[in-house]
Design a protein around this nucleic acid. Structure first.
Lengths: 194, 194
DNA sequence: GTCTATAAGGGGATAGAC
DNA sequence: GTCTATCCCCTTATAGAC
């Protein structure tokens, strides 16, 4: 029943596409380049992904799944305290931003390339970002501070700054800076309204 | 000599192109769309801008000139104190980020679309960002604080966060948040090492 | 002379067929 | 895997209107 010919083929193609899309941009990468880099035939790729739009959607979903796993693990390791969890979140992003091939947040980058509100993959990206933002709100809401919403906005602003891919090469200490700034911000907010 | 037939034509075309490039992305906007929106013939556009690359370069340079003027004015109004000037810088960006059509920093957006290090317009964008960063460093360096470089990094991180265009719709108070965070950060640094 | 309108060339893109 | 169809894009060239 429509068995997969070579198990993992779809995954391999998607991995190649992901690497290219992220490194060079979605619009800049053609299907032919992906086929060439994957070393497969055209039929194979179009068999798994009937159009570029579906391949791009899979690209978004793969990143989403990856991020969810990594974040969940980081949060679990941080324990139950909301402040610790917020710091762990920023530390996780800081670790990503320090990677050599880091080029910003794939969701934000995609939306920069495709701002159209009706774009299917763009909707996926916006949904993921809204959910991430909601998670920050939720954590801040569990803290005994005077203005949880304002605190969440500050953390989100710092995350946005960390995720700026194009200027990361200009300050390689952005990760530590962001973590320290979040720690201080949390500390002040907790100290002022205990 | 070589006088322009209709004065202001070049400017008008460039304004139309700028609006489209910024709103939809450079790769997404074709020359034909610009021609259609400008209501001119193809020859006229290609007479003023022999290629799309040159039009895009002019787009970058126009934004650069605009930013330099606006920032210079904001800094002049802020006076001589480096801390006031840093706050004014962030306030200026916050005002931009609050505009209805704000869609992030055009230089960062362009580099997201065209990461190629050899791209001519990309080099322009990187140079502008480096100079902006250097201006922040210079201002922080004139402050009596223990770690001016670290302070500059924090301010730059906040600016990067403010300039994230795709998530600005998710928190419309980002401007005030950024200004308040910078004020606090400056205040703490000055108080700790006077 | 200045500009618009239109056609056409060259290249590369997605996608389908064999 | 190669080959083809179709389309869009950048760019140039030609022809026509004010």
């Amino acid at each position: 029943m429509a068995r997969t010919a070579a198990a993992g083929t779809r995954e391999r193609i998607l991995d190649v596409a992901t690497a290219l899309f992220y490194a060079r941009g979605v619009r800049a990468v053609g299907m032919s380049q992906i086929i060439g880099a994957a070393g497969c035939g055209k039929n194979l790729l179009y068999g798994h992904f009937p159009s570029k739009a579906e391949l791009v959607t899979a690209y978004m979903e793969q990143f989403r799944t990856l991020r969810e796993q990594v974040v969940e693990q980081a949060l679990r390791a941080a324990g139950d305290d909301p402040a610790d969890r917020l710091v762990a979140l920023v530390e996780e992003v800081a670790a990503r931003a320090a990677e050599p091939r880091f080029r910003g947040c794939p969701f934000r980058n995609y939306l920069t390339e495709f701002p159209d509100p009706d774009d299917a993959a763009g909707r996926l990206a916006r949904r993921y970002l809204r959910e991430s933002r909601a998670a920050v709100d939720e954590l801040a809401g569990r803290l005994p501070v005077a203005d949880p919403a304002g605190l969440a906005e500050r953390v989100w602003l710092i995350l946005d700054g960390l995720y700026a891919g194009t200027t990361r090469a200009m300050d390689e200490r952005a990760g530590e800076t962001a973590v320290a700034l979040v720690r201080e911000t949390l500390g002040r907010a907790l100290a002022e309204a205990p």
